[in-house]
Amino acid sequence: MRQLKLIWDFRGPDALKTAEHHEIHLKDYIKTEQLQTDITGFQSISNIHAIAFMVVPENIMKPIRDTLKPHRGQLYQE
């Protein structure tokens, strides 16, 4: 099963803090919905761009995408 990385972009001087906080909400969502995934994270792209992400199996991506509205997605490769 392919894994997809759902990505939320944050920009501005507080982008990294915002992405870090967004990951908390992603973990809460995973717990609340009892999803069988545990790959989340945040990453600094530059000093004014950061991302938060969650990796999900392709077969459950659509309802998660429709609920959480990520900005973009890509294939996940470890």
Score class of each variant (00 low, 15 high):
Leu6Arg: 05
Arg72Thr: 15
Glu20Met: 13
Glu78His: 14
Gly73Met: 11
Asp66Ser: 15
Ala50Glu: 07
Met54Ile: 10
Asp66Cys: 13
His71Phe: 12
Thr37His: 01
Met61Ile: 06
Asn47Ile: 01
Lys62Val: 14
Ile51Thr: 07
Met54Gly: 00
Glu58Tyr: 05
Leu35Gln: 01
Gln43Gly: 01
Pro57Glu: 05
Leu4Ile: 13
Tyr29Lys: 08
Gln34Asp: 02
Arg11Glu: 09
Asn47Leu: 04
Ile24Phe: 05
Ile45Tyr: 02
Leu6Glu: 00
Ala52Thr: 07
Glu20Leu: 07
Phe10His: 06
His25Ser: 05
Gly73Ser: 11
Asp14Lys: 08
Arg2Ala: 10
Phe53Asp: 00
Leu35Val: 02
Met1Trp: 09
Thr32Tyr: 05
Leu4Arg: 06
Met1Ile: 11
Leu68Phe: 09
Thr40Phe: 06
Leu6Thr: 02
Lys27Ile: 14
Ile51Val: 13
Pro63Tyr: 12
Gly41Tyr: 01
Leu35Ala: 00
Ile24Leu: 03
Lys27Ala: 11
His25Ala: 09
Ser46Phe: 03
Glu78Val: 15
Ser44Trp: 06
Thr67Cys: 14
Gln77Gly: 10
Ile45Gly: 05
Phe10Asn: 04
Pro63Asn: 14
Gln43His: 08
Ile48Cys: 04
Ser46Lys: 06
Glu33Ala: 13
Gln77Leu: 15
Leu6Ile: 05
Leu16Ile: 10
Gln43Leu: 05
Leu4Ala: 08
His22Arg: 12
Ala52Asp: 07
Lys31Gln: 14
Gln43Pro: 00
Ile24Lys: 09
Tyr29Trp: 12
Leu75Pro: 08
Gln77Asp: 11
Phe10Pro: 05
Leu75Ile: 15
Thr18His: 03
Lys31Ile: 12
Ile64Pro: 05
Gly73Lys: 08
Leu35Met: 01
Ile60Asp: 08
Val56Arg: 00
Phe53Leu: 03
Ile48Ser: 07
Trp8Lys: 10
Trp8Asn: 00
Ile7Phe: 03
Glu20Tyr: 06
Leu26Ser: 07
His71Asp: 15
Ala15Lys: 10
Ile7Asn: 02
Met61Glu: 13
Thr32Ala: 10
Glu78Met: 14
Leu26Gly: 07
Arg65Val: 13
Pro63Arg: 14
Pro63Ile: 14
Glu20Trp: 09
Trp8Thr: 11
Lys17Ala: 09
Ile51Gln: 11
Met1Ser: 14
Arg2Leu: 10
Glu23Ser: 10
Val56Gln: 00
Leu4Thr: 12
Asn47Ser: 08
His22Glu: 10
Ile48Asn: 08
Lys31Ala: 11
Ala50Trp: 06
His49Pro: 01
His71Ile: 10
Ile45Leu: 08
His49Gly: 04
Ile45Val: 13
Asp14Ile: 01
Glu23Asn: 08
Arg2Ile: 11
Leu26Thr: 04
Glu78Thr: 13
Leu68Asp: 12
Ile60Thr: 04
Ile24Arg: 10
Arg72Ala: 15
Gln36Met: 05
Asn47Glu: 04
Ile64Phe: 03
His25Lys: 06
Tyr76Phe: 15
Glu58Phe: 04
Thr67Lys: 15
Met1Phe: 10
Ala52Ile: 00
